[in-house]
Simulated scan of single mutants.
Amino acid sequence: MKKALLALVVSLVSVNSFSHAPFVAPSNFIVAGGHTAVFAGFAELPFDSEVAIRGFEFSLFNPNGEKKALPLTNTKAVSVADVETSQEGTYQVIGQRKADIKYANLDQRWLRVLDTKDTKLKPLSERDFISELEVNEKTPQVSVKRFDDVITYFSKGKSSKLVKNSEANLTLEYSVHPNELKKNQPLMIDLAVKGRVAKNFNVEVEKQHIGLGEKDVVMKTISNNKGKVILNFSETGAYVVTVSSPDTEEKVKPIADVYRTIISLNVSE
């Protein structure tokens, strides 16, 4: 576990050429001292931060459920926060943002509008997005809200019952404490949005690379009609779990809010 967590910290300060999904993670999922660090950023590969995180408001919940704002300091490649860990038990970190997602209709397809700087794009028929440069005032357009949460957990001395966060956009209930996950131990997560079961939500799991030439470990599934999903981690290490709203057909006009929650977890022997 220490080897995996050391690799996590090292990879957090590396710089690549692209930035993708946001994340937040502790420098160690099990802590012992009076302070620890939390990292956040945008990454293409799990925990390989490329750009400091922006647009999110972060909060920390201590083991007693007390909430306070968690300011982060940015470098070019990563954001970091210092956390006082004077109490035993489990701490929760959550970052949240709300954004408009624009779609445009072209050739009877509703495509995501992206501000891409790439002028050498594939033909539109081979893409699932449309560039802002390809949209004009006559193009039918629509916007929906996307609610993003990035979440992680770490424990000092012992794990403790998770305090429910009423502000979370997507509610998560775990069958196993997130700081007590074991290899080959099934983990069931109950998903809900505003009290309603989140059925048919996409769930993707990616493992952090800790060695050169290591094969990707990726799991993909969807939540059932009761909003439940079962995950089984076949290897130890640090993982990113991404839960997102069901996909919509390109020919269907987007009308509903969408949700995405990205969770950082560690699995031990």
Rank of each mutant, 00 (worst) to 15 (best):
A32S: 13
E50I: 09
S159C: 07
L60K: 03
A40Q: 01
G55L: 04
A198L: 04
S59D: 10
D48I: 05
D82G: 14
L111I: 03
A238P: 08
E269H: 06
S160P: 02
V243R: 00
K102Y: 05
L172H: 02
E206I: 11
L12F: 12
L124S: 05
W110D: 01
V13G: 14
T261Q: 02
S166C: 10
F47G: 04
Q96H: 09
V229G: 03
L172Y: 05
K220T: 14
Y239E: 02
P22L: 07
D190P: 01
K138V: 07
F61D: 03
G55H: 06
F147E: 02
R260V: 09
A7I: 03
V13P: 00
H20L: 15
I151S: 00
Q141H: 06
M188R: 14
S160K: 09
K158H: 13
S245W: 06
L12M: 15
R109L: 09
E214T: 08
V150N: 00
G95F: 01
I230F: 06
I262C: 05
Y91W: 04
S86D: 12
V193M: 13
Y259L: 02
T242H: 04
T119I: 07
T261C: 04
E214A: 10
E134W: 07
I53Q: 00
L8T: 08
K183E: 14
M188L: 09
A7D: 10
A168E: 10
H20P: 03
I189E: 00
T152G: 04
E204V: 04
L265V: 12
S245C: 07
V176F: 04
Q92G: 11
G33A: 15
A7K: 11
S264I: 03
L106R: 10
D190H: 10
V10I: 15
L187S: 01
N225C: 04
V83D: 04
T171N: 15
K164F: 13
G55F: 00
A40T: 14
D107K: 14
